[in-house]
Simulated assay, not measured.
Amino acid sequence: MGISLDASDFYRVKAELDAFDPALTRSLRKNLKLRGLSITEAIKEKLREPTPEGNASGPGRDALIAGTHVTVSFGVRSGGVKIVTSGSGLPAGHAALLKVYNLASFRHPVFESGRQSVTRTFTSKESKSQKKQRVRSGELAAWVTESGNPFFDKVIEKELTRHLLHDMEGALDEAIAAIGGR
């Protein structure tokens, strides 16, 4: 999952700054990274919030927090500021968490195992009739709806409207003004 603030002319601006004074490029990169870090911190804070069910933490959320970062690139094809939450560190069996936890709510099956409930996803090879049979046999107790915690797009959108675009424009203006002022 990722979002980019695309600026197709990042490479051109970088080349002009480098030709004038490479220190300006370093300063611009640092300023853009600092602005992006404010968004990643907001995403991490959102991930730390308890769900309406009261779940406050867990290895899945810890992995999402650890996988949230920002990069600034001035490459010809990949120029821009990229904010990414990676699911690569998620525990086995939690790969879908990156996608579903970012939803307002999601459904999953609950299986009964003695007194303890165990959640398990169906395999793609399992037919509808096999699922129905497990419902009839009592193995599948119910499908439950759980609240997600939209942590990515909504947080970024909020931060962007708050101040990030203004800050990034300011950083670019500052670098360009430095070129014109010398």
Rank of each mutant, 00 (worst) to 15 (best):
K99C: 04
R77P: 01
P109K: 01
S113Q: 07
H94N: 04
T145M: 11
G79S: 07
S88M: 12
V72R: 00
V84H: 02
S137Q: 13
P59T: 09
T121G: 14
A104R: 13
F152A: 00
F74A: 02
E112M: 11
F151E: 01
P91N: 06
K82P: 04
H69R: 12
V84N: 06
S73D: 14
R136K: 15
A95G: 12
N102Q: 02
N149P: 09
S124L: 13
T145N: 13
G67Q: 08
Q116K: 14
G89H: 10
E53C: 00
E53N: 02
G58W: 07
A66V: 06
S78E: 12
F106D: 05
G54W: 00
L90S: 03
P91K: 00
R120F: 07
I65V: 14
K128E: 10
T123W: 07
E139H: 13
E112A: 11
S129V: 07
H69A: 14
S137Y: 01
T145P: 02
W143T: 13
S105W: 03
G138W: 03
G148C: 10
Q133L: 14
H94Q: 14
H108L: 13
A96M: 11
S86P: 01
Q116V: 11
S124Q: 12
T145S: 13
L140Y: 04
T145C: 07
I65N: 05
S57I: 03
P109I: 06
F74M: 01
L97P: 04
G89R: 14
S129F: 06
F151N: 00
V135Y: 10
F151Q: 02
F74S: 01
T145F: 07
H108M: 13
H69W: 14
Q130D: 15
A141T: 10
P59F: 09
G58Q: 09
P109L: 04
V110L: 15
S113K: 09
E146P: 06
V76L: 09
A96P: 06
P59V: 08
E146S: 15
V81F: 04
L103P: 01
V135M: 14
S127F: 05
F152S: 04
P91A: 07
A142P: 05
S127N: 05
L98G: 09
F122H: 05
G114V: 00
Q130H: 07
P91D: 01
T68V: 08
A141V: 12
G54I: 05
P59Y: 07
K82A: 09
K125F: 10
P150K: 03
T123D: 15
V84I: 10
S129H: 02
S129A: 13
E112W: 01
H69S: 14
P150N: 08
R134W: 09
A63V: 10
E112P: 05
V76P: 00
Y101I: 11
G60K: 03
K131V: 15
F152C: 02
L90Y: 05
S113I: 01
